[in-house]
Design a protein around this nucleic acid. Structure first.
Lengths: 213, 213
DNA sequence: TTTTGAAAGTGGTCTGACCACTAATCCTTC
DNA sequence: GAAGGATTAGTGGTCAGACCACTTTCAAAA
């Protein structure tokens, strides 16, 4: 019988250990030799597990110092898979489309809620009037305002994974369009808001925005 | 100066090798010993790289046989995202809502495509008329027909984590509703299709479906 | 011809040995 | 006593070699 692989056990055992001992990001993890003894396996097996976690960005290792639990914001699996999968254009298309799904759903959600009456909403309006407004901020604020944190996280990861179409700063020519979107949302006119939003983002995605950059 | 880690080089070298030698999914990769010799590194270093790729689902290893390039559909992007993201976002409500987002997006996509003219579509109609039609099958078929595999994967996962609201068999009383949905989709009337679908699923989610079960 | 089993090749694991690096410690020197 | 340099213990990084468990292959035996 093909036995389950040990290093996979190690991966999950380490996850449990981190959870039980309440190890926080930045904290040190027991050394490879300690772990090997504690879990009664060879050091090479421990290393195979640790290298996997490191590649995912879940831990950081510093020679001479030790191994540390990484900042969750540094999780890397997205970029990594990207290098392998991105060649498949269809997949990239799926990523973009799925991002769009979450974005339009967010707008829809804001329209059917009272989110556009919150103080955060006002600050968004103000910043749109000011200088140095990053495109990504605009979309992210919308995602946040939708109130669905899971959707927000998925969107965030997809953005990294599929190459961020919202890179760069909002150009003066774009502002009227964005203002229209906000206005439509305030009037709870989801249809118009989504149509305008798609118009804006499709220009960015197709890279036809040299006019703006 | 802290040297860059060898096993990371191996990871990218292997990616290049796979690309250059046109190794296809399912094909065999050189053995660990061969790779070690070819790349002039120790076998354990090779293994650390391979184990990382395996955890990502990019390769499969079978003891006694060898290492194989994995089917891209088996890539673990979503699964890994799940284990590390969903844990702090388990709000059932968010999961359900996000499922719904993907479902309505799928219906929207089918309506604006020719998917409802495919033979698969016919079989879906037929099965709805027959016996033993599982609710989940209905929704899954819609997700598949949308053509967005990433969205399908995410939906699949959410279903596992959020508790499957589409458990069980379609009751006779539900069939007219489902038929209406299909009909609306055929007529490319997304609005009606989505409204009816939401009506159906909300009953299931709220657990008010004792009438049907 | 069919069956058996030995051999070769593969991944899985362990051990022990270095190397490169860091941080704490001790010891010299001022 | 304080400052600075050398020593040392501990860490991750890598390698080589040895087994083990498993699969496939193929030649010898029935």
């Amino acid at each position: 019988m093909n036995q389950p692989k040990r290093y996979l056990n190690i991966v999950s055992e380490m996850r449990d250990m981190i959870r039980e001992q309440n190890i926080l990001p930045g904290d040190r993890i027991p050394s490879e030799r300690e772990l090997a003894e504690k879990l009664a396996v060879g050091r090479s097996t421990i290393r195979e597990a640790l290298r996997s976690l490191e590649l995912l960005g879940l831990i950081e290792t510093r020679r001479g110092e030790g191994t540390f639990l990484a900042d969750p914001r540094k999780h890397r699996l997205v970029e990594l898979l990207a290098t392998f999968i991105l060649q498949d254009n269809k997949t990239l298309e799926d990523v973009r489309e799925t991002m769009c799904i979450h974005e339009t759903a967010a707008i829809q959600a804001i329209c059917t809620s009272d989110a556009s009456k919150l103080p955060i909403w006002e600050s968004l309006r103000d910043r749109l009037g000011g200088h140095e407004f990053i495109r990504e901020d605009f979309v992210r604020e919308l995602m946040v305002l939708s109130g669905n944190r899971l959707s927000l996280k998925i969107w965030f990861l997809l953005k990294q994974y599929g190459g961020n179409p919202y890179d760069g700063e909002v150009m003066p020519e774009e502002r009227p369009l964005l203002k229209n979107i906000l206005q439509a949302i305030e009037q709870q006119d989801a249809e118009t808001a989504i149509r305008d939003f798609k118009a804006w983002s499709s220009v960015l995605i197709k890279g036809e925005n040299e006019q703006w950059q």
